[in-house]
């Protein structure tokens, strides 16, 4: 958690990232930037999913709909914050010549999405059978 505190300080003192170590090859920094943007798009997709659930599933009870939408929006926020955190840590590691930070986040996100997808399949099947 102290790692997180440290990167949090870096978020708000951006100059300190530049002061440390050596400037890496610009191509590595650009690759890091593209990874950051890819995570940001993932976050935006989750947020868009939150809107979509609210707008395109009007038959669901309000509680279920709002719960799913809030879950997706929360995941989107988490993903966005994690994107900038990981970007800062990678940038810092490259400047110091250290190994890039490893992260459990991709696994966590995939598992959550897989569980939700399986749950959706079950819901769709049951809904379909119940409708007949």
């Amino acid at each position: 958690m102290s790692d997180f505190g440290q990167s949090l300080r870096l978020w708000f003192a951006p100059r300190r990232v530049r002061e440390e170590g050596q400037t890496p090859d610009y191509r590595f920094s650009l690759a890091n930037e593209r990874t950051f943007l890819a995570w940001l798009r993932t976050a935006l997709a989750l947020i868009g999913g939150g809107f979509a659930v609210d707008q395109f599933l009007p038959d669901l009870p309000w509680g279920v709909r709002a719960g799913m939408a809030l879950g997706l929006l929360g995941a989107g926020v988490l993903c966005a914050l994690r994107a900038v955190n990981h970007w800062v840590r990678c940038e810092q590691a490259m400047r110091r010549g250290e190994d890039l930070p490893v992260s459990r986040f991709p696994v966590l996100l995939s598992v959550v999405i897989a569980v939700v997808a399986v749950a959706m399949v079950v819901v769709v099947l049951f809904g379909w059978e119940g409708g007949r």
């Binding site: 400037t23 950051f36 914050l81």
Partner: peptide
Amino acid sequence: RALSAGAALAAVACTV
């Protein structure tokens, strides 16, 4: 030059 931390933060702030 590398992306500035300010720009990265601003982009994330808009998303959040």
